[in-house]
Every structure is written in structure tokens, then in C-alpha cells.
Design a protein around this nucleic acid. Structure first.
Length: 670
DNA sequence: GGTTATTATTTTTTT
DNA sequence: AATAATAACC
């Protein structure tokens, strides 16, 4: 028996209301994850609902993993068997692998990322002789946007989103068709297709939707404010045969509109599902009062929101600080001073985070942390698999899995060199398309080119090897058979760089090793690649190294959603950073920036520092900067300090004094 | 036609 | 500041 006595009355109601639609409006720090975890535990242990009937969808893999661990803590192993905790994308893939054949794809599909999308669009534009005149990424985002609105290539022209007067719409129409045909021919999906095709499958084959709806009798969707129209259709399919759907979200934390998140999903939920039980969690268990107070003041200014005020019982605590600093280097130094001070009070680095609006702000912080020899960990940024060498290897692996994956084949056909240049490849591609056969067939039959036959044989041979031997063993075989290490040595004049690249290969290998240790007989090549491609910003860059403790965490405000830290540094609290320049210029919804600010502020439990630089180098020019409009008027809610001045010193002298103080402080720690 | 000098342009957030 | 695009040059 699981006791729900540890929950407050609202949380408890949320955990106990298991049947019918439930909307939980859970403010920041209101014990949302705890509530969901207990709700699942209650269903499993107290109501005897089998785990296989319960599905909880969260926003990131990390969140799903955390929930898994917390449920494991509460519920006996036998009782949580078959429980599905997943993200939309990995759930979509699971469904597609089982049922995509209905739509004429093979289940061995490849997933293409944005750079793959770009190269198909480039090709399409080339064919239309319009390469120069149009911007690839504009077209890419339009296609993505359309898919997230549920519009296919053939529907675009007759949709309300098509403007015949608009050149871009005209060209996008052509490219969209070309792009989608290619993807289907390559047996490949892009990120949006994962959701788009699942929804299409549900609509065209209602029995498939019913199958899953019957399988998952109890649904829970976390971070519901960040779902888009397509995801709503997805949910609709899953609730075809019942209405046991519980969504959890906070309209104040909606920060993914740029990616198609549709706030009406949460605002209209009660209209779409009749007899919804609405539960509000307004008690904040995370932050000390002064932090929450500032956050409330900031978000209050948003006019379009469900009005609410978070309460806290965490009395005491210091007012947040706003620190004015000189340039960006000085901003980083000031943050590190504070980190060192906290460290002297025996506070662990793992309880500190530096949050920023955009990845471009990282550099000075990274430099200064290195200088001060403070261990740190950057979440997000360039993903591990996006590195050139790793992408090459993955291309080999994807080709091994899916011989129709032409993009991967073209990427690696001459890597390492096999004496086939652009011209030779072009001939093969032309030949393939004239006989309407996959390129790989042409390559493996091209008796004129012995090296290509050897290559094709290798691919075929390794395909079998992956069924016989462990993942990392075969990947190692692949690397040595193609001579990839010596290829790297040849490609980089700089031996240090070559060494670094080779280290990446070893990271890749040990990450495969770790994967197979973790998943045992489920550690198939297919699952491994899927995991790599669906890695999200909260996944650590390479999971070969388990997350170390005692590191400062650096990440964007977007990545920080759902996390919390005792001590938070919200840096770059400036106009044109937060709110971002682009949002001001484009006159788009500035409220989303304000919500982003709110998310950042509410990550802090005990202490909150905000910093801004008075001067920032932009495109090589020094530009004067001003504090963010979001906090400028709220002077009662925080303490302002100008760190560029000190006692009677001039700002210049003060900067020098600070520099000395900083180095003294560091010396004293040695 | 291919190399070099000059000038324009750039950075949002991500599954 | 760094890089891509364009112009000027041989």
C-alpha cells in the first residue's frame, strides 16, 4: 500500500483522480514530478492497474528517466512491469516500427536530422535552378512548420497557409514534394515525420489508433504547455477508446512557441475534453520567498495568462542580487568570484548553475572557469553525434541498417577515399534514378569499380556481423576495416587535432560499450542509433562518462526547464539578450521571453544572482548595454550592486582592484 | 578560370 | 572577430 499522506490536498486529489480527463495546472516548483510519481505508484500499488496499461509522456529523456527512478523507489519491481515512460518522439518511433508498413515504409527506416534535411533541400533547389535565390533554412522551417500543423506536401496548395502571390510559398510547394518523395524513397523520416506519420497512421487506419488506445488505458502528459497541434492529434488518437487522460502543465512556462508549441492546447483543454477535473497546484516548495516574489512580479506583467500567484512556505532567504559588471569577461569573473565564495562555505558545485539565453554567451564563462580551475559541465550546444567523424561513422551504421539510405551512402562512399569523386558519384546517382533503383544496388553491382564492390561487400558483411557479435566489437571492426584512424591522421595536418578526433572515436566506442552494458540484449544497432539521434539537450554530451558530481552546470534557459538548483546565476540579464534582439525586432511575442525569464528565476532554491554587462562586444564592436526591461522597474524586489565600482575608486581603478582581488582569492584557495 | 582583395553578414531557443 | 559572398585581378 502506498500512502499519499505526504501530499498536500490538491496533490493528493491529483494523484487519486485516475479516471476521466484531468488538467493539473502546476506552477513552478509545486511538486509536479512528485505528484505524477505518486499518481503512478497509486495506480500500480493501490488500484492494481497493470503497468502495461499506463503511459506517461514527458518532454525529455532525462525527465522520463528521473520519473522511472522515482517510481522504482516507491513500487515493487513486479508491480511496475511493462510501465511505459517515454517522450513523444521515442513513443512515435515505437509505434511506427510496429505499424508503419501500413503507409508503405519499411520498419527499418532511418532518421534524418536538420543537416540531412538541408542537403535534400539544396538538391531540390539545384534542380529548380533556384539555389541562389532562396534561403534553404527558411524553406526548411516552413516545411517543418507545415508538418506540425498537420499539412502534407500535397495538401499545402489547398491549405489556408498557401499564398499564391508569395514566391516562397510557390518554391516551398515544389521543394516540399521533392523532399518528401526523396525521404520516402530513401526510407527515411525527419523529426517531424515521426509525429506526422504517427498521426497520419492513426487517422487513416483507425484500428491502429484503437489498438494503442486499448493498450494504454491511462495516459499522463507532462509539460503539456509545450505540446503542439500534431502532438494533440497524437493524444487524441491514444484516447480514442477512453478518456483517462491527465495532462500537467503551466501556461507561464510555455517557451517553445517557436517550435510550434500551441498554448491553446492547455487553455482549451477543458473545452476539448468534457467533464475535465481541474486541479491547481499553487504552493511552491522550491524557492525561498524573495526569489518567488521577484518571479511573481515579473510574470504578473503578462496579460495573456491564467491568473495565479504562487505561494511559498519557505520563509527567510536573501533577496536576489542584480550585479552590474563591465564587459563580458568581467561578468564571468564576477560570477566566478561568487562561486568561489559559495565554495568556501562548503557548498557543492553541483548545486550551482549558470543559465543564459543563448549559447553564444558561453565563451567567457568557459574561459574563466578553466582559468579558475573550477570543474564545469555544459549541457546542450553541439551534440556529440553532430561532430564530423561521429557523423561519418553513424552514416556507415545507418547504411548498414537501411541500404536505401542514400544520403548516408553518399556521405561515406568516398570516406576514406575510394577513388570516386563528385563526378563519378554523379554518374552513379544518375544511373540509379534512371532505372529507379536504390543507389546502393548500383554501387554493389558496379563491376567496373572494384573498390566499390569491396565497399558494398563490407557493408553487407557487417550487416550480418551485427547479429552475431556485440555492438562495440563490430563498430571497432568497422573502424579498423575501413582504416578510419589512418584516414584521420592523413586528413589533419595538425597532429593535436588528429589526436582529438581519435579521442572522439574512442568516446563513441565506449558509449556503445556503456549502451550494451546498460541494455544487455536490447542493445541492438538500431536502438543505439535511435538513442543517439533522439538525444535531447538535457542528455549529457557523451554518456561514456557518467555524470560527475561537483561540477557547475552551464546551460540555456530552455534546457533548464524542469530542473532546479540551490544557487542560480542568471547571466546576461540585458535588453537584447533577454528579451532577445530578434524578438524585439521581429515584433513577435515578447511574452514568451518574459516566460523564459520566469523559468530562469524559478530554477533557484536558495540564492539567485542576476548579472548584466554594461558593455558587450557584438560583431567585434563594443556596444553599451542596459538591464532587462523585465526587472528594471522592480527595484524593491532585489538588491542592486555595481561591481564596476568599489568604495571611492573610479570604475577603472575598481576593475583593476577587482582583478587583483580575484587573483588573491584564487591564490588563497590553492 | 582560378586566386586574392574587399565587403557584407552574422547568433535564439531544439525534439 | 570570423566567415561567407562578391569583386577585382592576373
Amino acid at each position: 500500500m502506498i500512502s499519499l499522506a505526504g501530499l498536500n490536498p490538491e496533490q493528493r486529489l491529483a494523484a487519486e483522480t485516475v479516471h476521466g480527463p484531468v488538467l493539473i495546472l502546476a506552477g513552478a516548483g509545486s511538486g509536479k514530478t512528485r505528484t505524477i510519481t505518486f499518481r503512478i505508484a497509486h495506480m500500480l500499488e493501490n488500484l492494481g492497474i497493470p503497468g502495461s496499461q499506463i503511459l506517461a509522456v514527458s518532454f525529455t529523456n532525462k525527465a522520463a528517466q528521473e520519473m522511472r527512478e522515482r517510481v522504482a523507489h516507491l513500487v515493487h519491481k513486479d508491480h511496475r512491469k511493462g510501465l511505459t515512460l517515454s517522450t513523444f518522439h521515442s513513443l512515435g518511433i515505437k509505434i511506427l516500427k510496429e505499424d508503419l508498413h501500413h503507409l508503405g515504409y519499411s520498419p527499418r527506416f532511418t532518421i534524418y536530422d536538420t543537416s540531412d534535411q538541408m542537403s535534400i533541400i539544396r538538391e531540390a533547389l539545384k534542380n529548380l535552378r533556384a539555389e541562389k535565390a532562396y534561403d534553404k533554412s527558411t524553406i526548411q522551417s516552413k516545411i517543418s512548420w507545415l508538418k506540425n500543423k498537420g499539412v502534407s506536401a500535397s495538401e499545402f496548395k489547398d491549405s489556408p497557409f498557401f499564398d499564391p502571390e508569395n514566391d516562397y510559398d510557390q518554391i516551398t510547394e515544389h521543394v516540399f514534394h521533392f523532399y518528401q518523395d526523396k525521404l520516402q524513397f530513401y526510407n527515411a523520416l525527419d523529426f517531424d515525420d515521426i509525429l506526422f506519420l504517427t498521426v497520419k497512421l492513426f487517422k487513416e487506419f483507425p484500428q491502429v489508433a484503437e489498438k494503442y488506445s486499448n493498450r494504454f488505458r491511462y495516459l499522463m502528459i507532462d509539460e503539456y504547455q509545450d505540446t503542439n497541434g500534431l502532438q494533440f492529434e497524437f493524444i487524441k488518437g491514444l484516447t480514442k477508446t477512453h478518456k483517462n487522460i491527465c495532462v500537467v502543465g503551466d501556461d507561464d512556462q510555455s517557451i517553445y512557441a517557436f517550435r510550434g508549441a500551441d498554448i491553446t492546447n492547455i487553455l482549451e483543454f477543458e473545452k476539448r475534453y468534457e467533464k475535465t477535473t481541474v486541479i491547481k497546484l499553487e504552493e511552491n516548495y522550491r524557492s525561498y520567498f524573495p526569489i518567488l516574489h521577484l518571479a511573481n512580479e515579473v510574470i504578473k506583467e503578462n496579460k495573456v495568462r491564467k491568473p495565479k500567484t504562487m505561494r511559498t512556505s519557505q520563509v527567510g532567504g536573501d533577496k536576489p542580487m542584480l550585479l552590474a559588471t563591465g564587459d563580458t569577461e568581467h561578468e564571468a569573473q564576477v560570477v566566478i568570484e561568487e562561486i568561489l565564495k559559495l565554495q568556501k562555505q562548503n557548498i557543492s558545485l553541483s548545486e550551482m548553475a549558470i543559465l543564459y539565453r543563448s549559447n553564444t554567451q558561453i565563451e567567457p564563462f568557459e574561459d574563466q572557469l578553466r582559468l579558475a580551475q573550477i570543474p564545469y559541465q555544459i549541457i546542450g550546444g553541439q551534440k556529440f553525434y553532430e561532430k564530423k567523424e561521429i557523423k561519418d561513422l553513424i552514416a556507415y551504421l545507418m547504411l548498414i541498417l537501411n541500404p536505401r539510405d542514400e544520403l548516408s551512402l553518399r556521405r561515406i562512399i568516398n570516406v576514406p577515399q575510394r577513388g570516386i569523386g563528385n563526378v563519378g558519384l554523379g554518374k552513379l546517382v544518375a544511373q540509379a534514378s534512371s532505372v529507379k533503383k536504390p543507389l546502393f544496388n548500383i554501387v554493389s553491382e558496379s563491376s567496373t569499380h572494384p573498390e566499390l564492390m569491396i565497399f558494398a561487400d563490407l557493408i553487407k558483411r557487417l550487416r550480418h556481423r551485427f547479429n552475431e557479435a556485440p555492438l562495440s566489437t563490430v563498430i571497432q571492426e568497422l573502424i579498423s576495416e575501413i582504416g578510419y584512424e589512418s584516414y584521420i591522421e592523413k586528413s589533419y595536418d595538425n597532429p593535436k587535432l588528429a589526436l582529438l578526433k581519435k579521442a572522439d572515436l574512442h568516446h563513441f566506442l565506449s558509449s556503445a560499450q556503456r549502451f550494451q552494458d546498460l541494455f544487455k540484449h536490447d542493445a541492438t544497432l538500431e536502438n543505439f542509433i535511435e538513442k543517439l539521434l533522439l538525444a535531447d539537450s538535457q542528455d549529457t554530451k557523451n554518456d561514456a562518462e557518467p555524470t560527475k558530481k561537483h561540477e557547475v552546470t552551464l546551460m540555456t534557459l530552455h534546457s533548464s526547464k524542469g530542473l532546479e538548483f540551490d544557487h542560480v546565476f542568471l547571466v546576461g540579464m540585458e535588453e537584447e539578450i533577454l528579451p532577445h534582439k530578434r524578438t524585439i525586432q521581429d515584433n513577435t511575442d515578447i511574452n514568451e521571453e518574459r516566460r523564459l525569464c520566469y523559468v530562469g528565476l524559478t530554477r533557484a532554491r536558495k540564492k539567485l544572482f542576476m548579472t548584466y554587462a554594461k558593455e558587450r562586444k557584438i560583431y567585434g564592436k563594443k556596444i553599451p548595454r542596459f538591464p532587462s526591461r523585465f526587472i528594471i522597474e522592480l527595484t524593491e524586489s532585489y538588491i542592486s550592486q555595481d561591481r564596476t565600482t568599489f568604495n571611492d575608486l573610479t570604475p577603472e581603478q575598481a576593475v583593476e582592484f577587482k582583478a587583483n582581488f580575484f587573483s588573491d582569492l584564487m591564490n588563497s584557495l590553492k
